[in-house]
Computed example of a mutant assay.
Amino acid sequence: MDPFDYAKAIELIKAPFPSGTVQKRGDNGRAYIPNQVYTDRVEAATGSMWDREIKEVEINIPHGYVKVVARVTIGEHCRDGIGFSEIETDQNGKGKSLANKVDQAFAEAVREALDTWQIGWKDLAPYNQAEKDWGSNPALRHLLNSTPSSGGRDPDNQSRTFVVHCCIFSGCGKQLSRDEWDFLGLIPSLNREKMVYCFQHIPSHIKKKAPAEVIVKYEDRIKSK
């Protein structure tokens, strides 16, 4: 087995994503890249030579938040990130869906850790050009004007190596198409490694979390297959 090339892995991680990867949040309109897209890129770029773990969890019901400190390790290098999520309480003051809130905070913490390796910076910089946004800083102008070398390898093709996934809906079992798998990756906070659905059987309350224009685009694309 060839030795792990950390520098090459980071080069691939920092490379631009395909057009259309950046999404807009429904609440504030800010640009973001879904967590699943980051996971797919890091998995492909490192050849699975990475790991993520929870280092610390704080569940503070009186103040209504969950805090998670996560560590991401790539090769022999590690970075920590912090994530938060809000807790909702029932009529008795007990926290609701705490496991899901921990998962959300963990996902944010992992994203924060990966951000220190500049993943997605080139894609998000054009959306952060307001006077006080980080993308407008002259020291980061290179993010708008240059593309990291891929050393003769296509990072997008590499990250799109397809693994067979089958719909978990009862009685279906259909193998997902590339488009269906990609669509799951665009649904915020969805763990598509566990919640594997073909487009037809994605529960409506999950599907509607994706941006409306993305749903229409994928409906048209999948119907044309």
Score class of each variant (00 low, 15 high):
182 D>K: 06
131 E>M: 13
115 D>T: 12
150 S>Y: 06
109 A>K: 08
192 R>W: 13
171 G>I: 08
101 K>M: 14
114 L>F: 03
197 Y>V: 05
106 F>T: 14
132 K>I: 06
149 S>N: 10
97 S>H: 15
158 Q>L: 14
177 S>A: 08
156 D>S: 06
165 H>K: 15
115 D>Q: 12
186 L>T: 09
186 L>V: 03
108 E>R: 15
184 L>D: 03
176 L>R: 00
160 R>D: 05
169 F>Q: 11
133 D>L: 09
177 S>N: 05
106 F>C: 13
149 S>D: 11
152 G>Q: 04
121 W>H: 15
142 H>C: 10
103 D>Y: 01
128 N>D: 01
152 G>Y: 11
157 N>Y: 01
108 E>A: 13
198 C>K: 05
122 K>N: 12
189 S>Y: 04
200 Q>P: 00
182 D>Y: 01
145 N>E: 14
171 G>P: 07
191 N>F: 11
149 S>P: 02
97 S>I: 10
190 L>A: 04
155 P>F: 01
189 S>M: 14
132 K>G: 13
163 V>N: 15
148 P>S: 05
171 G>D: 04
105 A>E: 09
121 W>V: 01
193 E>M: 14
131 E>H: 12
109 A>G: 10
192 R>S: 03
172 C>D: 11
135 G>F: 08
198 C>F: 02
134 W>Y: 02
121 W>E: 06
164 V>R: 15
93 G>E: 02
123 D>S: 03
106 F>S: 15
140 L>W: 03
99 A>T: 09
147 T>Y: 01
103 D>H: 06
152 G>L: 08
159 S>E: 14
170 S>G: 08
178 R>F: 07
143 L>T: 03
145 N>L: 08
157 N>L: 11
184 L>F: 08
156 D>W: 02
115 D>L: 05
190 L>D: 02
102 V>M: 11
163 V>E: 14
117 W>A: 00
136 S>V: 09
116 T>F: 04
136 S>F: 12
151 G>H: 10
170 S>W: 09
146 S>F: 00
120 G>E: 09
176 L>M: 03
136 S>Q: 12
160 R>P: 00
99 A>V: 09
179 D>V: 08
103 D>C: 02
149 S>A: 12
113 A>F: 00
99 A>G: 11
166 C>S: 15
174 K>E: 10
188 P>T: 04
104 Q>E: 15
174 K>L: 12
159 S>V: 06
168 I>H: 01
114 L>H: 00
136 S>D: 08
181 W>C: 00
107 A>W: 01
156 D>V: 13
167 C>E: 04
117 W>F: 02
108 E>S: 13
116 T>M: 13
168 I>M: 02
161 T>L: 15
104 Q>Y: 07
189 S>C: 10
183 F>C: 07
198 C>V: 02
122 K>D: 03
167 C>W: 07
160 R>S: 13
193 E>F: 15
94 K>P: 02
192 R>Q: 09
107 A>I: 07
162 F>S: 14
148 P>F: 00
181 W>V: 02
136 S>I: 11
183 F>D: 03
174 K>S: 11
168 I>F: 00
197 Y>I: 05
